[in-house]
Amino acid sequence: MHAVMRWRKGWLVVGAVAGVCALMPGTAMAGWGPGGKSNGGATNTGGGRSGTDIVSMVRYSGSSKGDSGGKGNVTPVGNWNPPACWYEPRTANDFQKYVENMYTETVNYPGQHSYAKTAVGQFRDTYKDGKYKDYNLDMADKGTWWVAVQDPDRWMEPAAQLCNEMPFWVVNGDTPDVPNAVTPKVLAELAYNRLQLPQTQVTLAPKNITKVNLRTWAWLDKAKFKAVDVTAQINVGGLSIQATTTAKPVALELEPGTKDAETYPASGKCAINDDGSIGEPYAAGNADRTPPCGLKYLRSSGDGTFPLKATVTWEITWTGTGNPQPTRLPDGTFGSEQDVTVQEIQAVNR
């Protein structure tokens, strides 16, 4: 019989062969077992301890979660998603301190159930006096403990439950034989999930109020839509690796918000120009031209507006330890809506 401890937003879940039971909310404990909590990926954050809660040791920098103002997360194209859980190392000393603190807090917690004390005791015994001896402290310079960590924003997803191995020992230089063990590529995928992209607010001519059957020009300034990147790195024991994930805008797609509209080009997808801009600013004298990127509404919005959605496709690559050449990850998208008023005027002179 063995115990598995998991952090669930303040709930300690203790599983054994007999079944699964939940303790009172507010128990300030987390598990090294499957589903230990991570730190949320804020810029320049890393491992630490809050009571007996151990957070991820992966650090992030760049245009990452926590940046302010008009930004959002990239959405992968297709069915691919960054890891919702992963495995990362801890030194023998840190692992021993954590387990002992967790054991002490559990057995001393007022009103704690006996089955919780038994479960955490069995967990402790595995690493103290059971399969392992004294947390392998006498081998501290020869390896590290590897533990499961979850993305705290995705802890309820089924994918976050897939890292269900109990903490295990890995000799320095060996590769852990589990999926999603921290590698440069896994770090790149974690960084992907923390990319913060600018809002896609296209410039229109006429601006926000256009006319029925009037070609409306749309464009994005190259200065606003530059490549953004996030670097993820981890330094624990003998492991020191990093990866940088970079997102570069490559296309803009316009969705007028009504079927009674046409887009330019007809696909609604505007390619990026050589100088990094998308579309072309309207200039006097171009009223009779078809815009390289734009749209035309065929009916009025009445007393309301049409929700014009502009979505940018970002090409995403990574470099990192042992991988100096940019390597593709799945493209991502990020978009936003803006209200457009369309007035019922058939002929307009510019």
Rank of each mutant, 00 (worst) to 15 (best):
T321R: 03
K248M: 06
L137P: 12
K269Q: 08
W155P: 00
V149H: 03
R328E: 12
S63Q: 15
N108L: 13
F123I: 07
G19F: 07
D274Y: 09
T75K: 12
V228Y: 11
P152S: 10
P34Y: 10
F95V: 01
D331P: 15
C163R: 03
S300Y: 04
K259D: 14
P83F: 07
M24V: 14
G322T: 08
M156C: 00
P82F: 04
K9G: 09
Q242L: 03
G268R: 06
A347D: 14
V4S: 12
G26I: 07
T43C: 14
G62L: 07
P34S: 14
A18H: 09
K248Q: 13
D303H: 13
R6T: 13
G40F: 02
R194N: 14
L190P: 02
G238F: 06
V228S: 08
R59I: 10
D339V: 00
A271L: 11
I278A: 11
L195C: 13
R6E: 06
T244M: 02
D125P: 01
Y297I: 01
G31Q: 12
T319A: 02
G238M: 07
L295Y: 15
W80I: 04
P206S: 11
T258W: 04
G237F: 12
T244K: 09
L190I: 13
E280P: 02
I316Y: 08
M139R: 15
L298K: 14
V236A: 02
L239R: 15
A18Y: 05
Q338R: 13
P158C: 04
M5S: 13
D67Y: 08
P76R: 01
W217L: 07
P184Q: 01
G15N: 05
L162D: 04
V228P: 11
P179I: 02
V212F: 01
A261V: 01
D134V: 09
G62M: 06
P176I: 00
G33M: 10
S301G: 08
K9Y: 06
A261F: 04
N108W: 05
A92F: 10
E262M: 10
P326G: 06
E280G: 02
S336E: 02
G257V: 00
P330L: 00
L204V: 08
D221H: 09
T27N: 11
N273I: 09
W11M: 14
T313S: 08
Y109F: 11
K211D: 08
T91E: 05
I209P: 00
E315W: 02
P249I: 01
N39L: 08
I209R: 15
G46F: 05
G130D: 07
C270P: 08
S56L: 06
D94E: 15
G15K: 10
N44L: 09
R289T: 08
K185N: 01
